[in-house]
Write a protein that binds this DNA or RNA. Structure first.
Lengths: 140, 140
DNA sequence: AGACATTCGTTAATACATTAATAAAATGAC
DNA sequence: GTCATTTTATTAATGTATTAACGAATGTCT
């Protein structure tokens, strides 16, 4: 059988840890968790989203998202309202506080991203991203 | 700023999900969680390991590992003993039950791995693994 | 030997992941 | 229009992630 360290899922896990090491310290200053930032980042780009769309985009399952949304609301970063057409749906968007915080954080995080890419290799990074996209479309 | 879906950590997360989709169904038959299988897989290869070594290998933090070890022991898959030289260290190894289970599962999982590689591309898989290794060595 | 810091495993507290089950709203067949 | 079905969000239960703090065992220094 394949050696333990040659497992693709383990490699993906380790690689993700290595990448997150660039960003985690900045998020901890706020403080925000990795998942909270993913949610805020998605809402910054799409303005207002349904809970289900948000879960899909952020790769977070609905039950987890329920908790994340609650905590973000308590911290004053998001607001929620019910959809007028469909009373089941919850529409979520950023508060001004979140938008301000995002505006201050994003350039710092982007700089870290650049630093990571520089130390890795722009060319290889592009290749890696393409291969990861390809892997995402491989289904059992 | 970079588009939401172009984030490397998110791509790594999605790619890992896509890969795990090949193996999860088999593990659920036992049932075993992803982390439990990682621990068992490591112990199968290294016979007996200290808790700290196991954590390092499996990319699991000590506090998480404590719980995982406890549950695996209750299920009869592992046994633990104190190191004679250093009473702080815990030595962990597989039970016969675990070895039998592993022998039955590993060829099935390996077959899935092969299937995944086939559908992806052997050549690209090799490139991907090398790039992931390289990324692991990039530190802030 | 005795004070000191280190190391290893664990516990505590909070946040998230995963599956199953539930309640409420909307949809579709009749 | 009524009822079974489907969809959406939540709750429940268990397992894991992360940080801080703790206690016991070892190592170090004087």
């Amino acid at each position: 059988m394949r050696k333990f360290n040659d497992s693709l899922p383990l490699r993906l896990l380790k690689a993700r840890e290595a990448a997150m090491a660039f960003f985690r310290p900045l998020l901890q200053e706020i403080p925000l968790t990795e998942q909270q930032w993913r949610v805020i980042r998605a809402l910054n780009e799409f303005e207002e989203l349904e809970s289900k769309q948000l879960a899909e985009l952020c790769c977070i399952l609905s039950p987890s998202l329920t908790g994340i949304i609650n905590r973000l609301e308590q911290q004053g970063y998001i607001k929620r309202r019910k959809s007028p057409e469909d009373q089941r749906r919850i529409l979520i968007s950023l508060t001004d506080k979140a938008k301000t915080m995002f505006a201050q954080m994003s350039p710092r995080l982007e700089a870290r991203y650049q630093e990571m890419t520089d130390r890795f290799s722009h060319e290889d990074m592009k290749t890696l991203e393409e291969l990861l996209n390809k892997l995402c479309n491989v289904k059992p």
